[in-house]
Design a protein around this nucleic acid. Sequence first.
DNA 1: CACTATTTAATTGTGTATAATTAAATAAAA
DNA 2: TTTTATTTAATTATACACAATTAAATAGTG
Lengths: 149, 149
Amino acid sequence: MEQLYKQLQLENQLCFSIYATSREITKVYKPLLDKLGVTYPQYLALLVLWEHETLSVKKMGELLYLDSGTLTPMLKRMQDQELVIRQRSHEDERVVFISLTEKGKKLRDKACHIPEEVFSMANKSQGELEKLKETLQELLHSLHTYNQK
Amino acid sequence: MEQLYKQLQLENQLCFSIYATSREITKVYKPLLDKLGVTYPQYLALLVLWEHETLSVKKMGELLYLDSGTLTPMLKRMQDQELVIRQRSHEDERVVFISLTEKGKKLRDKACHIPEEVFSMANKSQGELEKLKETLQELLHSLHTYNQK
DNA sequence: CACTATTTAATTGTGTATAATTAAATAAAA
DNA sequence: TTTTATTTAATTATACACAATTAAATAGTG
């Protein structure tokens, strides 16, 4: 039983370190993203839009691992800020396509230097962070596959 | 500019992989924690209470990297479920101590096997996950130190 | 002692997250 | 072709997160 209790110690919990690190990262981004007027999840939506130009809510959800309950209200707020346009597909009325406005496209150049600014706060080498990213992507894939079933 | 755009690709973002993995982990815990009737953040609060028996809201916030805006309502819900007791300190009326009820203490034995169940879904060796945890704890420390300033 | 600064929770307001349900549209099957 | 199943967003309800403010209590200073 002692051994089992030991695994319940916060210090020993990988899951907690991921959870806490994720939130600290959001805080690091905050002042940088305030300059663009967006939140961290909104910034992630912009990342995929800068890459794909136009995509459905479903596709965005698959890329960001978020569902419509999160995306719909968030994208409506972004539409209110004139960053994106939401329009239903003519071929399939169930589908809503999201695309960037000119204002949304322009933000890309202002966001360009954010990755390196965040990197500088990590106190880790490029290689170590690259390795960390790869390990996490593998873990993410395993967990997501499991959660789908 | 192309190089800078490349760093804005979702695929290249360590931060996103942490953010997405954190949420997938919460989903893995969900069915396990449903049996105990708690959420993942509530489970984290229980972890520190199982270790410390009694502690202030401030101390819990320091351990979990959460502030009173999150903890106060969450701990009130846990009190409604009769998992914890909230009582103001007599020495310093600003301080609220949180302690476990008998029901809260008993949950520990039901939670004992959760860590290994979650571990089994990761498809990674014990050593690799241990290394990952250490790297993340270092990163967490760097980011938290930065965010405090 | 009076005054100021600090500490600690609670509150408020905004923005995610997610499960569960609903509703509309399309596709597939009998 | 009617029925049934599936797909896709939106909606609803609950629970975090966190910045900013408030309020109460304590500690520190002259």
